[in-house]
Computed example of a mutant assay.
Amino acid sequence: MTVELGSDDRCRRRRTRPHMIAALPADPGHTLRYRPVMANGNGVPEKVAWVLVRDDFVLVTRSHGRDRFYLPGGHREPGESDGETLVREIDEELQATIDPGSMVHFGTFEIGEGHPEHGPFRMICYTADHRGELTPSREIAEKAWFRYADRDRVSVIDGLVFDVLHEAGRLS
């Protein structure tokens, strides 16, 4: 699914998976703070993110010096596929190994040009199996398992993922 938030704070939606439906307002109380990311051919900065849900909780991480939590993942290096990016980023951030063969596209979320907090920005999300303990490393100060009630502690774009998980009954 792609969710786009425009300057008028109304959502436009395009479904890529029929069971995922969201029409979500912008939340000006959140600030997106991402390090510089690679842009796609359209010049939109992108992040590849991992959605890991266990027992109605979703995994999030917080970088050193940041207040907000984010889904684990990061920017694509030149020439990398989404799978290569996710494998590298999760190894760097959580010292775990993603099984690229198990990756399933969960949704693509986008904040459009003119959003009051940030834009444009695109986050391409995947679920995937992993091996190894989830141990924060390098730039990650901590990992946490959040419920939907913790939505106000994540970025705007990550909040969109929380909303979809909640509507699907996977995050209470």
Rank of each mutant, 00 (worst) to 15 (best):
R15V: 11
P78G: 07
H130E: 02
V154A: 03
T108K: 10
L165S: 00
V154Q: 06
G83P: 12
E117Y: 03
C11Q: 13
A23M: 05
R122Y: 12
V3W: 09
S7A: 15
G83T: 10
P116C: 03
V53G: 11
H19I: 02
F69E: 00
D163H: 04
H64V: 13
P36R: 15
Y70H: 13
G114Q: 08
A141Y: 05
V156Q: 12
L160H: 12
P36A: 15
R153K: 13
R13G: 07
V53F: 11
T2C: 12
D150E: 07
L5K: 03
R33W: 02
G169K: 02
L94D: 00
H75L: 08
T135Q: 01
F121S: 08
T108I: 02
S137D: 10
I157A: 10
G41Y: 07
L134W: 01
S81F: 12
R33Q: 07
E142Q: 13
R54L: 09
D129Q: 13
S63H: 14
G6V: 04
E167H: 00
P100K: 06
A22K: 03
G41K: 13
P25V: 03
G101N: 10
R153M: 12
A96H: 05
G29I: 01
S172P: 11
L134T: 05
F109I: 01
K143N: 00
T108E: 04
G101A: 09
G132E: 04
S81W: 13
M20S: 07
R147Q: 07
M38G: 15
V51Q: 07
M20Y: 07
C11I: 11
E46Y: 13
E113T: 12
R153P: 11
A26Q: 06
M123K: 14
S81M: 11
T97I: 11
G83A: 15
H118I: 02
F57K: 14
P72N: 06
P25E: 01
G65T: 06
Y126N: 00
R151G: 00
A22S: 01
F121N: 09
H64G: 09
R88Q: 08
I98Q: 01
I111N: 03
G83M: 11
R14I: 05
H166I: 04
E46W: 14
P136H: 04
D99I: 15
P45Q: 02
D129P: 03
F57H: 14
E110T: 14
D163M: 02
P28M: 04
V3S: 10
T31R: 11
R33C: 01
F146I: 02
Y70W: 09
E92M: 09
G114V: 12
P116E: 01
Q95K: 08
G119T: 05
R66N: 02
F69P: 04
S7K: 11
C125T: 07
D91N: 10
D27K: 06
I21Q: 08
V154E: 00
L165N: 03
E139K: 14
G29A: 10
G159N: 00
A128E: 09
R151V: 01
N42T: 14
I140C: 00
T127V: 04
E46P: 14
V104E: 15
V87M: 01
S137I: 08
T31I: 09
T61M: 12
S155W: 03
